[in-house]
C-alpha cells in the first residue's frame, strides 16, 4: 500500500439533521494538522461555523446539456419523442430535467441541437483562521449530479495536501446515494452520527449496509442519546450485531443549537461536551495508528 502520512475520516449520518456538521466542526476545533472538506454539497453548512476566507474558486462543469437552435429547428418533434426525461417541450430543452444523454443531439436530422458542457456549480478553496485549508462547494439551484462534484472537490483537496499532514476530515452528504459513495472513496475511517429516533435507527441500518461494502474502520456517535433511552439501547444492540462500536454519546441540549446560532463550535461553549469529544477523538486517533 502507498505510504501516506495522513488518515482520512468521513463523517456520515444517513438521516439529515442529526448534528453531523456540528460534530465535524467540533473535531475541527480539537485537532491540529488537518485539512477539512465539506462534501455535503447539496446543502453546504460547515462554512457557516468555520467562517473561512475564500482563496480561490473553481467553476464546476457537471455535464453536458442539450440546447435547441430555434433558427435551424423545423419542429419535427423527433427530439421530444425520444427524450426519456420529459425534458423537451415545445422545442425547448428544460435544463433542469435534461440528464445529458445526447440522444436528441444525435438524432436531430437538421443538426439543430447543440450539446455542450455547462457550469452547474462552484467550489472554493479557503483558509481558516489557524491556517487550515478548508474546501466547500455550492451547486446551482436544482442541480443534481453531486457525486461527481464530491469526487472533484476531494481530488482538488487531496492533490494539494501539505506534506506531513495528519488528518483529512470529510463532512459527508446525508442519505445513502451516489454522493455518499463518492465521499467514502479513499477514506480510512467512517464516523456515523445517529440519533435515538425511530427514523434515526432506520436510516442508520441502511447506511451500515452501504458501508459494509467498503472495508473501513467505523464507529457510531449517538447524538441526543437521552431523548429516548429505549431506542438508544436498540442502537447499542445493533452496534454489537454489526460490530461497529459506539464511540460516544452526546446529551440533548439547547446549548448545541445556541452554539450554532452564535456561530460557535460546541466545544467552545461547554466543558462537558468538550470532554466527551476529547474522549471520542482519543478512540478515533487510536485507529489512525
Amino acid at each position: 500500500m502507498p505510504d501516506k502520512s495522513y488518515k482520512q475520516i468521513v463523517v456520515l449520518s444517513g438521516k439529515g439533521g442529526t448534528g453531523k456538521t456540528t460534530i465535524s466542526a467540533a473535531f475541527t476545533g480539537l485537532i491540529k494538522s488537518k485539512v477539512i472538506i465539506d462534501c455535503d454539497v447539496d446543502a453546504a453548512n460547515l462554512h457557516l461555523l468555520l467562517k473561512p476566507e475564500r482563496i480561490t474558486s473553481h467553476d464546476y462543469y457537471g455535464g453536458k446539456k442539450a440546447s435547441i437552435d430555434k433558427t435551424r429547428c423545423d419542429e419535427c418533434g423527433l427530439c421530444e419523442s425520444v427524450c426519456s426525461f420529459d425534458a423537451i417541450n415545445n422545442f425547448d430543452v428544460d435544463p433542469i430535467s435534461c440528464e445529458g444523454c445526447g440522444f436528441c443531439f444525435r438524432i436531430c436530422p437538421l443538426n439543430a441541437i447543440s450539446f455542450n458542457q455547462v457550469k452547474t456549480g462552484s467550489y472554493y478553496e479557503c483558509l481558516l483562521e489557524d491556517g487550515t485549508k478548508f474546501y466547500f462547494a455550492k451547486l446551482s439551484p436544482g442541480e443534481g449530479n453531486s457525486g461527481k462534484l464530491v469526487t472533484e472537490i476531494k481530488k482538488n483537496a487531496l492533490d494539494n495536501l501539505p506534506g506531513d499532514l495528519k488528518w483529512v476530515i470529510v463532512d459527508g452528504p446525508p442519505g445513502i446515494g451516489c454522493p455518499v459513495n463518492a465521499s467514502i472513496s479513499s477514506a480510512d475511517i467512517v464516523v456515523i452520527v445517529t440519533e435515538p429516533t425511530l427514523s434515526g435507527i432506520h436510516d442508520l441500518k441502511r447506511l451500515v449496509e452501504l458501508i459494509g461494502k467498503f472495508n473501513l474502520k467505523s464507529g457510531i456517535i449517538i447524538n441526543k442519546y437521552d431523548l429516548n433511552q429505549d431506542v438508544t439501547s436498540q442502537i447499542y444492540s445493533f452496534s454489537e450485531e454489526c460490530n461497529i462500536p459506539v464511540i460516544g454519546k452526546i446529551r440533548f441540549s439547547k446549548k448545541f443549537t445556541n452554539a450554532i446560532i452564535e456561530g460557535k463550535s460546541i466545544i467552545e461553549t461547554d466543558e462537558n461536551i468538550r470532554n466527551e469529544f476529547i474522549n471520542i477523538w482519543e478512540q478515533i486517533s487510536m485507529w489512525g495508528k
Binding site: 456538521t21 447539496d42 446543502a43 453548512n45 451547486l139 436544482g142 443534481g144 446525508p174 446560532i261 456561530g263
Partner: peptide
C-alpha cells in the same frame, strides 16, 4: 430533502410548496 434533481422532481407540478426550516444559520442558509 436538499435541492437536487429528486427534490425538483417531487416539487415540480405542485400547486403549492411548504418549506420547512429551523431557527439556526444552517436552516436559514
Amino acid at each position: 430533502p436538499g435541492t437536487s434533481c429528486s427534490m425538483v422532481e417531487a416539487v415540480k407540478d405542485s400547486d403549492y410548496c411548504v418549506l420547512v426550516t429551523e431557527s439556526t444559520p444552517f436552516g436559514l442558509n
